[in-house]
Amino acid sequence: MLHTKKVDDLISIHKIYHEPRIWEYARAVEIRNKYPDAELIEVPAHNQIPELFGFEGSVEDWIWNKRNVLILGVKKALSARANTRSSHWIAPSQSNGCTMSCSYCYVPRRKGYANPITIFVNIEKIMGYLSRHAVRQGVKTEPDLIDPEYWVYEIGENSDCSVDAAICDNVKNLIDLFATTPNAKLTFATKFVNHQLLNFDARRKTRIRFSLMPHNISRLVDVRTSPVSDRLAVMNDFRKAGYEVNVSFAPVIYYQGWLEDWRKLLNEMNDILDQQTKQQLAAEIIFLTHNEPLHKVNMRWHPKAEEVLWTPAVQQVKYSETGQRNVRYKNNLKREIVFDLVSLCKELIPYCKIRYAF
């Protein structure tokens, strides 16, 4: 039996912070009309909100903000950042922030650590930039691990597009754009099942990556997300609706009995996925990265999750590309557990291409 989480369980907008002159944009007006009872609060910029930014607050404030606060802004700097893993390019954001509250989330918890959703309303300008960028790339002549035919653009690096699509048509507009872009496709990962997306015309030019992990650990750390069972249950439907369906095993968390839990999940995938979905399936495998500031914040509201996320005996310091001091599993252990999970995937879901594992 599915315990489907609905959009209304996640979002009930009571406050809309907005930049000056935002109502000049049709998308902003559409959103205002969708939430007519929301209090409108003008701010100098979407990232200049003293009531939210830089204030950790209590978890009660975080969840209230995630559920009830929406921010509308204009995306000013447009650039596509080169990537080498699940996409060739990170597209300029159509949004940032998320209404969900996964305890391991590596996205900086700005806006009061809650990081509620900001929607960028100049979607036409974002789309125009992406169209011109794709034209400049020309035809993709060499297959690679990212895609055999198309240039791939990530549109959900700092958000969950399945939730964003319930607020406005930004995501639908981008799916429509790439459906008719001859040399490119888009991709995003999600932890939320939004059945509205099944009505979009993806034409195999959108790759949706359902984030999966064993049920018991997901119930502990995937706060306010759709249950893993719901995500598994719709994968065939999304493939039938015209999406390329992939999976993201992320983050993989090491704990007593972890591999046996993954064995159960992979066997469940075998039972649920139809043959056509299996034939086009690919996975990315990303093991947990954590950091001490997030650990300290989490200890104030979700210490149970930290019992599996913060395990100094098996973790070591790792500096990110931006210089942030993180922790990951120690090198010798990391090599072993990456090998173990990759081997298990090859044994149980051999049809699933592993795009990368680290």
Score class of each variant (00 low, 15 high):
282 A>W: 13
19 E>D: 10
168 C>G: 04
277 T>R: 00
67 R>P: 03
73 G>T: 02
281 L>A: 06
344 L>M: 10
269 M>R: 01
51 E>T: 07
296 K>R: 15
10 L>F: 02
223 V>M: 03
203 R>P: 03
330 K>H: 09
24 E>F: 03
110 R>D: 15
157 E>G: 05
63 I>T: 05
21 R>Q: 15
305 A>T: 09
255 Y>I: 01
226 S>K: 00
233 A>V: 09
350 P>I: 05
293 P>F: 11
332 N>F: 11
245 V>W: 00
53 F>D: 15
150 Y>R: 00
256 Q>F: 12
264 K>Q: 07
255 Y>P: 05
214 P>M: 00
254 Y>P: 02
297 V>C: 11
72 L>I: 02
334 K>V: 13
240 K>P: 05
321 E>P: 13
136 R>W: 14
94 Q>H: 14
56 E>D: 14
117 I>C: 11
190 T>G: 03
122 N>M: 07
168 C>T: 10
294 L>Q: 08
101 S>Y: 10
107 V>S: 12
277 T>Q: 05
227 P>K: 03
45 A>S: 14
259 L>A: 02
148 P>C: 08
294 L>R: 08
76 K>W: 03
301 W>V: 06
3 H>R: 03
352 C>L: 07
205 K>L: 04
45 A>T: 12
157 E>T: 12
18 H>W: 02
58 S>I: 09
334 K>N: 12
247 V>Q: 04
115 N>R: 12
318 K>T: 15
254 Y>N: 04
264 K>I: 01
287 F>E: 00
102 C>E: 11
142 E>Q: 12
313 A>N: 14
336 E>G: 10
143 P>N: 07
306 E>H: 06
268 E>Y: 01
210 F>T: 02
99 T>F: 11
354 I>R: 07
151 W>T: 08
121 V>E: 09
258 W>R: 00
313 A>V: 15
63 I>C: 05
178 F>Q: 03
161 C>S: 03
127 M>A: 12
65 N>S: 13
47 N>F: 11
229 S>Y: 10
18 H>C: 04
173 N>D: 15
243 Y>D: 06
74 V>G: 07
343 S>E: 09
65 N>E: 12
103 S>R: 10
33 N>D: 15
346 K>E: 14
324 Q>E: 08
187 T>L: 10
251 P>N: 02
169 D>N: 11
102 C>Q: 11
263 R>H: 09
222 D>K: 04
322 T>C: 10
281 L>C: 06
39 E>R: 04
163 V>K: 04
230 D>I: 08
358 F>N: 08
131 S>L: 13
220 L>V: 09
112 G>A: 11
70 L>R: 00
159 S>L: 08
168 C>Y: 06
330 K>I: 09
81 R>C: 14
150 Y>W: 05
352 C>G: 04
332 N>A: 12
238 F>G: 03
